[in-house]
Nucleic acid binder design. Structure first.
Lengths: 223, 223
DNA sequence: CACCAACCTTACAGTTCCGTAAGGTAGAAC
DNA sequence: GTTCTACCTTACGGAACTGTAAGGTTGGTG
């Protein structure tokens, strides 16, 4: 899933440099140079992963844009990027709902690192589903989807698979499974083997494999 | 619920200034001056709301502390607070999993604003449980607790109660229940009445009531 | 090879869950 | 009051879930 960034910046030179830099690391960067236009756009599109916001804009100030955005959407991370370096500006920006504040001039490396830090949050944000091949897991609703159809599981198998997909790609040992998936539920050792067996049956028709790592435990992966 | 901050900083003067400043805005600030001790503490306590981390520490470097923390817990926000201002240090800190990086010397006002920005995230984050009297619901783990003991429910009752506590205090009509709790699961009308009955039995010994609103639906409330 | 431990597979029985059916109760309208 | 409808309660059989047991496989080790 390509990440979608919005850059609100009126300086054409800086904007093109940033667009170029960020496009390499991430995916799509849209750019808007005008405050009023930014307001319009944000009232339609709610699905940006990150907004980079300059404060000195034609038509509307960046702070106005931020305030309007936050009145509707307090989710999307905003990084303010501006020549205004005074402490009071920073405090104001952050308190209006920005997540970070970087004063110009700045090093591109630092901007990239801060962007990564903000986007990283999304990763372990439970509203983003975990994906593994054709299997996906909505952590919010605790709901699996396989090949685009709902996959409903009995409680025990559900917990087991949820734990495994959480550590997708790396082996999870039985002790950890007992601890995290079945905390205090007196599940025997052999019982897990049976759950695994049943899960394998269900996943057979997909591209997801539940491999056993002898002596360690189990590991969920794409074949 | 008082917020709990951890300050890892060896300079006593700065530490006491920060403790004083932050205690006013928030609640409890614990302070550790030593890198090794920080590692120990963090392997026990996982429930800090924010960690302020200096990089130059006796015994273990702040980056080591950060790395060890992130190998177990990628949730707790970390703000690095250090005299090392070089860009490469910043990039390194942020890429190791820090959420923000503030170079000394800094203005207290800016620190406070950045701390607020980091803590603000927590607010509308589903890791905060829903509470209703002695019943609480951990949205992350989809897990109920009643009178401080785990309340495990069969799937159907679980979904019903989860939906009701989401709208705690206001009536939820059956159509909505069918739609949100049992989406596309062909649950009869009378079946819901039976679930309600069974849930009432379980909640009987608590201060939570599942009231019926005649002609509308059901409503969860504290008696 | 022989042996052992870890793991797989299948079957089965105990338990829990589920939802319909059948009869009872309560509130509202007339 | 009667009547109607919404809701409650209980019981029961079928379905699904769960975990042990028993025997089969596999991979590693001497």
């Amino acid at each position: 899933m390509p990440l979608k960034l919005l850059l609100i910046e009126d300086d054409p030179l800086l904007a093109s440099t940033l667009t170029e830099t960020l496009t390499v690391e991430n995916q799509r960067v849209e750019r808007i140079a005008d405050g009023g236009e930014a307001l319009d756009r944000l009232s339609f599109d709610h699905d940006y992963d990150l907004i980079l916001l300059d404060l000195n804009l034609p038509n509307r100030s960046g702070l106005e844009v931020l305030e309007a955005l936050r009145s509707r959407d307090r989710q999307t991370p905003v990084l303010i990027l501006t020549a205004r370096a005074a402490i009071e500006d920073r405090v104001k920006g952050l308190d209006l709902g920005a997540d970070d504040y970087l004063a110009k001039p700045f090093a591109l490396d630092e901007l990239e690192a801060r962007v990564r830090a903000l986007l990283r949050r999304r990763q372990n944000d439970p509203s983003e589903p975990l994906m593994l091949g054709s299997l996906s897991f909505d952590r919010q609703r605790q709901h699996f989807t396989l090949n685009d159809t709902a996959l409903s599981l009995p409680p025990r198998e559900h917990r087991l698979l949820a734990c495994l997909i959480h550590y997708a790609g790396e082996p999870v040992d039985k002790a950890r499974l007992l601890d995290e998936a079945f905390a205090g539920e007196a599940v025997g050792d052999n019982a897990i083997e049976v759950y695994v067996h049943r899960l394998r049956r269900r996943l057979a028709a997909s591209d997801v494999r539940l491999r056993t790592v002898r002596g360690i435990g189990y590991l969920l992966e794409v074949e």
